[in-house]
Every structure is written in C-alpha cells, then in structure tokens.
C-alpha cells in the first residue's frame, strides 16, 4: 500500500512545556494585561505563528489537494480493485474505464512532476521547534510557475 500523500500526523498530545507553537497565542494574546504598563512591540511575531501544515484557503493549497485527490485514486487503481466506491465514480459510468484511466494517467504525470520534490513535505511536517525560529518557513506547497503572485503575504 503506497504511502498517503501527506505524512501521517501523529495525533498525540504534545508535552506541556517546550512546544512553544501550540501555546504561542496564549502567551501572546492571553494572560493578564495592565493598561498602565507598556507592552513590548510584537513586530515580526506573525512569522512565528505560521504552521505549514494547517489548511489555509489558498490557491496553492487547493491545487495540492486536487493533485492529492487524484493521486489517491491512482493508488487505489494500481493497488486494489476492491473499493468500488472509490473506483467507480460517475466518470467510469459515463465515459468508460479506459478513458478514465487515461485521464488519470495524464494527471498522474502532472502529480509526479509537481510532487516530485516531495522530500520537502517530509521536512516541513516535522514539528521541529528550531524550524519555527525567527525566520520564515519555507513553503511546502509545490512550486508552480505563476503561483508566486497568488501567495499570501506570510513572511
């Protein structure tokens, strides 16, 4: 069974201390405020708040999901024929299996091209605290020509 598109997240409870990311907004936005005191400037802190794994509404994310969705089907195609629900969508009925397979293959090529540098994914989902230090995280979304202009201002 091929690996899924996204590394399996370990659904675990992070240790209470040391994992700054999960409590960052509490430290910065909660806690007591005394109005007559000064608050240190938080310029630049936005960088810390970015987590590459979260689902953000952006064109890059949508494209990534679309590719993943198709790749998921390809994996089922090649690995198993026992999941009719996944295999036999409306497309199979309307235009026939061969055509579907062909379309899927061409999409598959695109997926391979786009996801080719998939090592990035493995690096970025790593919840390494050092990664969250005061520098912009590298994007994990696949690079596509023309996608730069749509990138949200994050860094």
């Amino acid at each position: 069974m091929p690996a899924t598109t996204y590394s399996d997240e370990v659904v675990a409870c992070p240790p209470r201390a040391g994992t700054l990311y999960d409590v960052l907004e509490l430290i910065l936005d909660r806690g007591m405020v005394i109005d007559v005191f000064v608050r240190v400037s938080l310029v630049g802190i936005e960088i810390l708040k970015i987590d590459a794994r979260i689902v953000v509404a952006s064109v890059d994310t949508y494209l990534r999901f679309a590719e993943a969705c198709n790749r998921l089907d390809l994996e089922r195609d090649s690995g198993s024929t026992t999941i009719p629900e996944l295999l036999g969508g409306g497309a199979a009925k309307s235009i026939g299996k061969r055509k579907v397979r062909k379309a899927a293959e061409s999409v598959g090529d695109t997926v391979r091209k786009v996801v080719g540098g998939g090592d990035d994914d493995a690096d970025d989902v790593d919840d390494d605290e050092e990664e969250q230090q005061e520098r912009p995280r590298k994007r994990r979304a696949p690079t596509r020509s023309g996608s730069n202009r749509r990138r949200p201002v994050e860094a």
């Binding site: 679309a66 969705c69 198709n70 497309a91 309307s94 379309a103 899927a104």
Partner: peptide, 26 residues
Amino acid sequence: KVRRLRDELRRHPGYEASIRLGEAVA
C-alpha cells in the same frame, strides 16, 4: 460533491477544475 468534482477533473483536466476540486476538499 468532492467525488463529482474529481470526476469532472478527470474528464477535463485543467486549472479551474483543479481549483474547484481542491476548494471542495479543503
């Protein structure tokens, strides 16, 4: 809806179809 959009994308691969599918997935 996701299945329908996925099928549409398979029939007519393209940027707009990808966006629609990705949006629905998200």
